[in-house]
Design a binder for these strands. Sequence first.
RNA 1: GUGACUGUAGCUCAAUCGGUUAGAGCACCAGACUGUGGCUCUGGGGGUUGCGGGUUCAAUUCCCGUCAGUCACCCCA
Length: 452
Amino acid sequence: MAQKGPLPGFRDFYPEDLARRTAIFRAWRSVARRYSFVEYDGPPLEPLDLYTAKSGDEIVGQLYSFEDKGGRAVSLRPEMTPTFARMVAARANALPKPVRWFSVPQLFRYERAQRGRLREHFQLNVDIVGEPSELADAELLCVAIDIMRELGLGPNEVRARVSDRRLLNALLTAIGVGDAQLAAVYGVLDKIERQPREISREKLEGAGLVPNQIERVLALPDIGSMDDLDRDFGHVESAKPAIAQFGRYLSHLHALGVEAWVDVDLSIVRGLAYYTGTVFELFDAKGELRAICGGGRYDNLLGQLGGVDLPALGFGMGDVVLGELLKAHGLLGDAMGAGPDFWVVSTEQSPPSAVLRAAATLRRMGYAAEYVLNAEKLRTQKSSAQIKAAERAGAAWLMVVRDETHAEVRALSRAPGDEARDGVEVLLHDLMDPERGFAALAEAGVPAPRED
RNA sequence: GUGACUGUAGCUCAAUCGGUUAGAGCACCAGACUGUGGCUCUGGGGGUUGCGGGUUCAAUUCCCGUCAGUCACCCCA
């Protein structure tokens, strides 16, 4: 049975799965638009060198790449940023700044699948280009947090951890860490929660740090507020600008109303090498899952990738971990839409053609209508059996076709305690008339068709 | 890429020490009942026990391989 499923790390989306995915997408788009971001997209397949040339080596090893029939080296996109950078760079001079774009690409990586990490996923990408102010950083994080709110999650379920590489660099410099040692220190900080203290010490020692420096580095993650920062580093002249800037970032977040979600955490490094300023990640509060979302400022990347010198920042939020978190909290459980508006029922006196005409008319009016899709049953099956089918399909209304010209419209009560209301007679001929049709249905309590 | 564990119906599971035709609930299909509070009853379909090989009179059960999944590592989205 395994060989008949999708490829490893890929997913089939059954209707209930797709309904959940669609609900996530809806929240993404709804919030992004609320912040005045506009949606774009690019090709899912790109030239291989778009990634090998500029992305980090670690990504290149996991590319879902191959040679196409024309002999071109191509790759499914592992991330959206290079495509985004190319598109923005191509119109850099014409676009009004700041650029506020978002996208919901399907991304691919060739690596062994695990929980929360597949070979394919959908990832919301939200980016701002052309604005160096920390107000843009605050706005960006606010988008990510608002999406959590939109999906029904609160600060007790999700935490945003924020840091800033400029700040961290300033503090490390104050501690006496040299540029050549930065990468190693970053690596240790990144893993400080998942790695025994002793291993961290050994690695820092291996990088050439002296004991006093090691202890100060290991104490950095304990800084959880501006007060802590001022206490430990407020006297360091060279660190003051970075501390002040970080403080402005936090105060903007406060003013935007998301301070309850935010934790200062200098161990947030982010694997991608291109971040230059603020960095943040969203986690489930219990810390059981992988990061829900990660992003930050990458002021040099557009220059490297697209040849235009513009500051930029952005984040990515995948559907896999987010979906698991929502499932764990019982959200998105019944994302499946309702059944059809109408179920058209035949009776002994109604010819099947009258049922089809009635359904066709309802559909022309904009309603979803279904009936027993079996000619024999339509002719002979008892209406009670058809009503049962209607219930199972989740239909809201019944239209029982009495004969060639008459039908009865009745609510199919689904909520416990609902009184079954008597049906209302309608003339099928009336339904054909644009005005009388809706009026006749309104008499039975049927609302206007949903707009989708 | 490395290591560990797991694999029986669509789902959750059962099957004595290796022993006859691999069972049950839910789901699905058909029918009966009921002017319908996701009720009740009857019947039905559905499995090469992941796949391949080995040991054995006999394998769902033991062994090897393989594929897939899960977890950890690596690494990251």
